[in-house]
C-alpha cells in the first residue's frame, strides 16, 4: 500500500468565466496535517468540495484513500469527515441533539467512537442541553468538529475552521487537531491566516486557483530567495516610502509596526540600509537581520506570479 491518503492531479474547475481552480496537483500523506493556505477566492473551498464529492471537477483526477472522488463517491462519503466553512450545525437543536443526529445519519455508534471526541466533547458536555445557536464561536467549533468525527472518518476535511474564531479558541482548536493526528487521522485544513501554516506538517500556498508552492513550512521558509531585514519604527508610512526609493531593494512591506525589507543584491547589507536611513534623518531605526516567515514567502510568491 502506498502511504498517500489524498491525491489530486491537474484539477480544474470553472464557474462560468471564473476560473476557480487552474490545474492543481498535490498529494497528502497518511496521518499528516496538510494546510491549504490562501486568501478568500484562492479556490480552497472549491478544491475541498471536489475532494468531498460535492462538486465534479471539469478536468483532472483526485482520490481519497484510493477511492476516486467521482466514481467511488458513495463509498467515499462513508469515510470522510467534513466541516464546511460555515458552521454547519442545526442552530435550533441542542448540542446533544446535533451530535445524535450526525451519528444517526452515518449510522455510527456514539458510545463506540466516543474516545475519539472525548477530549473535545467533554468541554461542551456541560452545555449538552443548550441550543447550538446559543454557543460561543469556540464552542460551536468544538461541536462541529465532534459531529464531523463521530463516525470515525479516515480523512478529516476542514474548510476554514478558524475563521471568525477568537485567538484562544483558535489555539485550542489547533491543539485538538494535533491530538487527532496522533490517532492516525489524515487532516486537510484550509485557512486564510498565514500564521497557522507553521502548525501544519506540510502546506500548499494558494492564490487565484493555483498552488504557488508546497512543502513543509520549513522548506518553504528556507527557500526564500532574498536576504531579509527587519526595522522597527513609529513612522511606518514615511519610512516605507523612503525605503522603496532606495536602490538595491527588492521589496519593503509593513509587518505591524515593523518593516520587512528584502534586498535585491549582495552589495546591499545592513550597513548600507542603515546609512541610507541615517542620511534621511532616521537615526532611531536600526535594520536587523530577520528570518523570513510564511507570510514573507507568500508575498514573494504573489509578486513573482504577478510579474511572471
Amino acid at each position: 500500500m502506498t502511504d498517500i491518503s489524498v491525491y489530486g492531479e491537474g484539477l480544474v474547475k470553472n464557474y462560468g468565466k471564473t476560473e476557480a481552480l487552474r490545474g492543481i496537483s498535490f498529494s497528502v500523506n497518511k496521518g499528516e496535517i496538510f494546510g491549504f493556505i490562501g486568501p478568500d477566492g484562492a479556490g480552497k473551498t472549491t478544491l475541498f468540495r471536489i475532494l468531498t464529492t460535492l462538486l465534479l471537477p471539469d478536468a483532472g483526477d483526485a482520490s481519497v484513500e484510493g477511492f476516486h472522488v467521482v466514481k467511488d463517491f458513495r463509498h467515499l462519503r462513508t469515510i470522510l469527515g467534513y466541516m464546511p466553512g460555515r458552521f454547519s450545525l442545526y442552530q435550533d437543536l441542542t448540542v446533544e441533539e446535533n451530535l445524535k443526529f450526525f451519528a444517526g445519519i452515518f449510522k455510527a455508534d456514539i458510545s463506540k467512537n466516543y474516545h475519539l471526541i472525548k477530549e473535545i466533547y467533554d468541554q461542551i458536555a456541560p452545555f449538552a442541553k443548550r441550543r447550538a445557536g446559543k454557543l460561543s464561536g469556540g464552542m460551536k467549533q468544538k461541536l462541529a468538529l465532534s459531529c464531523a468525527l463521530i463516525h470515525k472518518p479516515e480523512v478529516l476535511i476542514l474548510d476554514e475552521p478558524t475563521t471568525g474564531v477568537d485567538a484562544v479558541s483558535r489555539r485550542e482548536f489547533w491543539e485538538m487537531l494535533i491530538r487527532l493526528k496522533s490517532q492516525g487521522i489524515t487532516i486537510l485544513v484550509s485557512t486564510p491566516y498565514m500564521d497557522e501554516a507553521i502548525l501544519c506538517d506540510r502546506v500548499a500556498l494558494m492564490q487565484h486557483g493555483s498552488i504557488m508552492a508546497s512543502g513543509t513550512p520549513d522548506e518553504i521558509m528556507s527557500s526564500y530567495p532574498h536576504r531579509l531585514f527587519k526595522i522597527s519604527t513609529d513612522r511606518t508610512l514615511e519610512l516605507l516610502s523612503l525605503i522603496r526609493k532606495m536602490n538595491g531593494i527588492h521589496s519593503a512591506e509593513m509587518f505591524g509596526s515593523d518593516i520587512h525589507l528584502s534586498v535585491a543584491d549582495a552589495e546591499t547589507g545592513i550597513e548600507e540600509v542603515g546609512e541610507y536611513l541615517r542620511n534621511y534623518g532616521f537615526t532611531a531605526e536600526k535594520p536587523e537581520e530577520a528570518k523570513p516567515g510564511i507570510e514573507d514567502c507568500f508575498i514573494d510568491f504573489m509578486k513573482l506570479n504577478q510579474t511572471g
Binding site: T52, L54, R77, Y82, R86
Partner: peptide, 13 residues
C-alpha cells in the same frame, strides 16, 4: 442556506 446540506450530502445518506 445554512450549509448543513453540504454535510448531509457528504454523509452516506
Amino acid at each position: 442556506e445554512l450549509g448543513t446540506m453540504e454535510v448531509l450530502l457528504v454523509s452516506p445518506l
